[in-house]
Structures are given as C-alpha cells and as structure tokens.
Amino acid sequence: MHPVRKQRLWLVLFLVVFSSSAIGLMAYALRGNINLFYPPVDVAAGLAPVGQNIRVGGMVVDGSVQRSDNSLEVRFAVTDYEAVVPVVYTGILPDLFDEGQGAVAAGKLDENGVLQASEVLAKHDENYMPPEVAEALEASKSRMAEQAAGQGYGQ
C-alpha cells in the first residue's frame, strides 16, 4: 500500500478507536442515568430517591395484584427475586400487564417504601410462539413438576 494511504488508514483507525473509547467512557460514567428504571434491590438498598419521580421495574409478583371494588385503584408488587417493591396505581393497565410478567411503574416512593405510580407499562419478554406451542410447553412443565413431586413422595 502507498505510504500516504497507509498513514490515512492509521488515522481512520485512530479516529474510530479514540471516539469509541471516549463515548464508551461517557456511557459508563452515565450508566445510572441510562437505565430506564431501578431494580427493586436498589430501591430496598435506599439507592432510589424518595419523593422524586422514578421508575421501578421487575416481575409482577404472582398473586399480588389486588383490584379495588369501587375505583380503578390497583395494588401489586414488583420483584427482581431479591427484593420486593409494593406499587399503588390508579388507572387503566396495559393489555399485557399480568402476574408473573415484567412491568415498569413510574411514580414517587412514599415514606413507607410504596411506589405511588402515575404510569404503569408492561414489559414483554423476547419469547414468541404460537398458542399451541405455549400450551404444550405448559403441559410438559406441569408433567415434569408432577414427576418430581411423585419422586419426592417415594423417598
């Protein structure tokens, strides 16, 4: 390769590496702000500010959803399987909101550690399958659970 072009090639490589590391360091320094939400474990550790608008995300705890009889108020809890944050929300929930599924709630933490949510978003996962496949998976899962239970009784 011509020496002038070789020099320009190095310049191009330097440009890419230098700008990438600069922006990489910036993203690393700002990582707390780039996260869309706090995981419940951070809220439990007191890392999330009280009384300010924040988002908390995690899985909706099975059996935790309680709907009010005479208003749109919903109470539920989100977890990352390490800590649990209770959430109170008044409004309409997205269609995909369900127990055992991901959700992101935006609102303010009160003194009791309850998130007074003004918005709840459903977070869906990366699994896509036809309903029949999902049913077959569910059936085989429960069969395996039965088998495991059967073995447990045998011992």
């Binding site: 440009l15 890419v16 922006i23 996260n35 869309l36 706090y38 977070k123 896509y128």
Partner: peptide, 25 residues
C-alpha cells in the same frame, strides 16, 4: 466513522442497561 460507535451501543443497549425494550429474540 465517529458515529459507528453508536451501532454496537444500539445492538447491546438492551443487555447493558435496564430498558423497556426486550432483548434480542
């Protein structure tokens, strides 16, 4: 060339940070 840094960031953003968008299927 400077903008190329954004491409791996877009691709890995759902793994590196907590986001509403789900990870790659």
């Amino acid at each position: 060339l400077v903008g190329t840094v954004n491409i791996p960031i877009i691709y890995k953003s759902v793994d590196w940070w907590y986001s509403l968008h789900q990870p790659a299927s």
